[in-house]
């Protein structure tokens, strides 16, 4: 099986640990992953003004690249990329006036009418592999890992593009159950981490992020999993500063869900690039003896 893939800018640098572990996992599960050609930035946030179409051009251009390659589905990992691509796609599918304007503006491209389906990696994993088969492929069960699935905002909101309905976190929870982890209830699973507000707050001073870590710690969660490089930055990379400033009471190691997937599939831990996570993330996995070296 072969699938087209849109990685996103951050996944090529600071979030390589999200990208490489995910692609390697799919390949270990027998799926050939083909990165689309000449992709550009998705725009990270969906433009919310009614008269603004120029900010839809970026994501639509990526969908055109996928269409040119003959892809019916385009998978993405980063929650923000998923959201901007899926919402732009929805405009192209459902709003003929906006669609025609956008197509006319991009006179150097082929016309696009929403032919490509934007699918999040987790949805694809369930649909193409399935939890039963995934369970059979697990080499290192994450036994005893008390995991909290953190969706943040853009995987679920708005409903039209959400990977599952509000209040449901079954895709990531079921994946972790298949990997042998203990899935914990998590009250802040869809609370926003503060997102781009990191630009307007001092390091470690983002109250939204601190609240999430405190809730997780209070619920006995020992590891948080996310799908978004900005959530990982706000919750993971800023965590030590939150602790130093007294905004959180204790550390909760953070991961990309794909890193834990790769670990459970017994892939070389080098592929997970744990050096890009906070140091405590690696320590927890080492202490639990999950890691396999090449």
């Amino acid at each position: 099986m072969k699938i087209s893939y849109y990685p996103g800018c951050t996944l090529k640098t600071k979030a390589k640990n999200l990208d490489i572990a995910a692609v390697a996992s799919l390949e270990a599960l027998g799926v050939e992953v083909e990165e689309i050609d000449r992709w550009n930035c998705c725009g990270a946030v969906h433009s919310l003004t009614a008269d603004d179409l120029i900010h839809q051009v970026g994501p639509v251009r990526n969908l055109i690249r996928a269409k040119e390659m003959g892809a019916e589905k385009l998978i993405t990992l980063c929650s923000m990329c998923y959201n901007t691509l899926a919402r732009a796609n929805q405009i192209m599918k459902t709003d003929p006036v906006k669609r025609d304007t956008i197509n006319r503006f991009m006179d150097e491209e082929i016309d696009y009418n929403g032919e490509v389906e934007v699918v999040h990696y987790l949805s694809f994993l369930k649909e193409a592999i399935g939890w039963e088969k995934l369970k059979q492929q697990v080499k290192v069960p994450l036994t005893g890992l008390k995991i909290g699935s953190y969706y943040g905002c853009t995987l679920q909101r708005p409903a039209e593009v959400g990977i599952e309905p509000f209040g449901h976190f079954e895709l990531m929870n079921d994946m972790f159950r298949s990997l042998g982890a203990t899935v914990m209830g998590f009250a802040d699973a869809d609370k926003c981490c503060g997102s781009y507000q990191v630009l307007s707050s001092a390091p470690g001073e983002n109250s939204a992020s601190a609240n999430i870590i405190n809730t997780a710690a209070g619920q006995g969660i020992e590891a948080l999993a996310t799908s978004c490089p900005l959530c990982e930055f706000n919750l993971g990379k800023q965590q030590q500063q939150m602790l130093d400033k007294g905004n959180i009471e204790q550390n909760v190691p953070t991961y990309y869900f794909s890193q834990l997937l790769a670990v459970a599939l017994g892939l070389d831990s080098e592929l997970c690039h744990f050096e890009l996570n906070d140091r405590q993330s690696l320590t927890l996995l080492e202490n639990k003896n999950y890691l396999v070296a090449a």
């Binding site: 000449r38 550009n40 930035c41 725009g43 120029i54 900010h55 051009v57 970026g58 251009r61 503006f105 991009m106 150097e108």
Partner: peptide, 19 residues
């Protein structure tokens, strides 16, 4: 950048500027 591609269209040397 919003990927509008006007840069590439303007390039007299046919450089893929957006690229």
């Amino acid at each position: 950048c919003v990927a509008c591609n006007q840069c590439t269209k303007a390039c007299p040397m046919d450089v893929d500027v957006l690229g």
